[in-house]
Design a protein around this nucleic acid. Sequence first.
RNA 1: GGACGGUUAGCUCAGUGGUAGAGCGUCUCGCUUACACCGAGAAGGCCGCUGGUCCGAUCCCAGCACCGUCCACCA
Length: 891
Amino acid sequence: MREAMEPRYDIKEVEEKIYRLWEGSGFFDPDKLPEAKKRKPFTIIMPPNNANGLLHMGHAVGLTLQDILIRFWRMRGKKTLWLPGADHAGFETQVVYDKKLDREGRNRYEMSREQLWKEIWDFTEESKAKMYAQTKKLGASCDWSRETFTLDPKIIETVYETFEKLYEDGLVYRDLKVVSWCPKHRTALSDLEVKHVEREDPLYYVKYGPLTLATVRPETKFGDTALAVNPKDSRYKKYIGREIEAKGILGNLKFRVVGDEAVDPKFGTGVIKVTPAHDQTDFEIWTRHKEEIAGPKIIIDETGRLTGEVGEFKGLKVAEAREKVAEKMKEIGILEKVEPNYKHQVATCYKCGSTLEPLPRPQWFVKMKPLAEPAIKAVKTGKVKIHPKRSEKVYLHWLKNIRDWNISRQIVWGIRIPAWFCLGCGEAKINTEIRSRWFLVRHGETDFNKEKRTMSHGPISINDLGRSQAKLAALSLKNRNIDLIISSDLKRCVDTAKIISDELGGVEVIYEKGLRERDFGVLEGKTYEEGHREFGEDVVKSYDGEIPGAETMREVEKRAWEAFISHRSKHSHRNVVVVSHGGVIRMLRKKIKNLGVEDAFKVPGAKNAEIVPLEIGEKCKKCSGDLYEQDPDVFDTWFSSGQWPFATLMKNQKDFKAFYPTEVMETGYDILFFWVARMIMLGLYRTGKTPFKDVYLHGLVRDKDRQKMSKSKGNVVDPLGVADTYGTDAVRMALVIGNTAGNDIVISEDKIRGYRNFATKIWNVARFVLLSKKSEFAKIKVVYSPADKKDLVGLKKVKVQVTKHIEKYEFHLAGEKIYHYFWHTFADKIVETSKPRLNGENLKDAAAAFLKLETILKTSLKMLHPFMPYITEEIYSRFEPDKMLMVEKWD
RNA sequence: GGACGGUUAGCUCAGUGGUAGAGCGUCUCGCUUACACCGAGAAGGCCGCUGGUCCGAUCCCAGCACCGUCCACCA
């Protein structure tokens, strides 16, 4: 006799025990499944969740549906691989971390790249650990031995290869374009990350000489370089090609009028101003009229403030400037009228809602049309099927109208773009090998620096601030494997070099006279101001300007460069820090970058302890230099996650052969373009195969009032919290039932409680069946009554239907079917009618009744297992202590 | 400006060319040795509106309304 089941199902104890049991069995790993070799593969790559926070209900939906598929097919005899992973989620994590920095009164613009990287790395590691624990709690039967992070070296390597291949195929290029720029986060965004919102703003009618035009952005007027009209517009034809004079805020202006199709004659007055630097359309108009009109004139900076030739408005934020410029226009009589409530669409940052500022920036773009074509075909021919089907139309429409994809992001957190620019000529090299790294570092602050006084060869030390600057510099050089420090032999550099050496664990330092600061002759010890007064700033700060007793900059350049070159040839394979002075670094930069005299003096000088990185690679084919700097930008996260299905499997060629292409991609419909479309495109591009056969898109999770869940609304149902209360199985059922592809899911605690009740029901039925077992039954040859047979046929029918539903991704129907059958047919009817027989005199009949109940129960447990894995596994073990339901045969 | 989705019981949602379904909620009865996290039963719906196809429509078609979503360089 077996032990009776406890009257209550203990959620916590059982769930922990069972997950350990599964994990310990090794069966999450497809290669360790019973008869693994005979099985055919079935693969799902888990969408890598963002390693920057906890899982919410949306994640729980995805994990549940995937786990249902995996458990179902595992029981159906497939070699199931479910590969878990996490995404570094570049921009999103950066935003999360920026918020944290903000709370701490810090910001990333004041941090070194290395420091910021390290902090975010630790943060993601922590988040990842929590997230994986949550994933386990939800019962996910994924193969943890294959867990992958998007920043694993193997993944980065694959992503780099793809980038290189795209570059070689001419599908990736670097170009200056007006991009969507978030002034808060100071990075460009892709078209998909731009959220258009409707807003009402004043529409200003501004007089430009004889013409009047309408604009919502009078503040960009300082960047205007032309006016444009539609070439077919008879009102303005006569102006095309003419130059008109106009009154402007900063004086009179001259603008040429060009004719361009992009101008809609019906809008406003039919005349527009052309601001190539701050409007995409205008930039394009300029590219079509390059001969006639001037190009981008930048008057807005990367923080969204006015800059350049903007008179008194310099430094104002765009919104403030707008009002003030309009006022001024009114004052000087060029503001004709204002329509106060003009409705229009404004581009905003999808993350922070800031109004985006179009800015010209050189960025890496992927040419999308050639990639989109095969991806369109794949869906049209049914190689990839999207559920729900209607999403295919949306997908196709997007791909047909796709534009080139900006994959450069101006943040630190991400996969650094493997592009190096030759410092000599600017030529780009992709994925080139870097032999060693050199870093030019200016010494830390001295009191002379502080007092703005000239110091050439005097023995002055660095001050307290200088010391901490040096330490900070050393910190960011820490993981760079520095082998050698070459320093100017002047005291302030010696101090700096020593600190760096100490911080780096005693790296060798050699001193070099050639790296000394310029000898300033009679200016020694004088303030900059005095020097400028005496000799003129243009002489002091010039290449050949002579000062009594002083070296010219030309002479400094010569001796410093000679010193630098000679060390370069001696130590070209070592990673070296060169500690020197402001003037010297300026001159070294001039030589390295082949700058003209004028440019060399225009570049801002190195600040105290600032690091100028130089990377030594192969000889540039164009200018034969070998010093490079790496593009500081990182990839759009979706560029790397778009390669996820093959990148994860390519870590191991055997896995790639066995498991690629995968079966299903299960994810939310909100990332159809962001992710799914790009996976199909990049998968086809790299492997020639679609990365998966089916795409199942689930909806967004809402609360019972159809509100999107958000922390600020306080309506978030924490999946793990409720799982503690009602059990993971109940949460899973609640997430599946009533949930159809592509539609949003409504979840409430009531619903979850309902399925907890169901779990209790299952438990009690099982308890009853077990209690009804008598040892005598074993010896009896059972003969079923016609009613029994009918019940068993009914069971079979249910099973056929449940099977079909899961195969067709109709999880909700499968779940409902088995739920209804178990409760209202099995428990309410079959069990009830069996009671008298079980306790009756006729032992043979009792045995038949019992065997039927046991059969139906065990089969039901199998059918329920993909949905409610914990409780079913636990109950099954009471009937079959030597078996594991997870790997039992479905049939 | 395009495209898509929704509109079914008080609430949240399934569903089907032939007298409408589930969960929760409500009401009545029931502590029957698996289960009150339960059982038996009940009430409750012109299946958004207007036309059309059909023997027959909640389901197919057309139009409309409201709600929602996505896409779109109109200054």
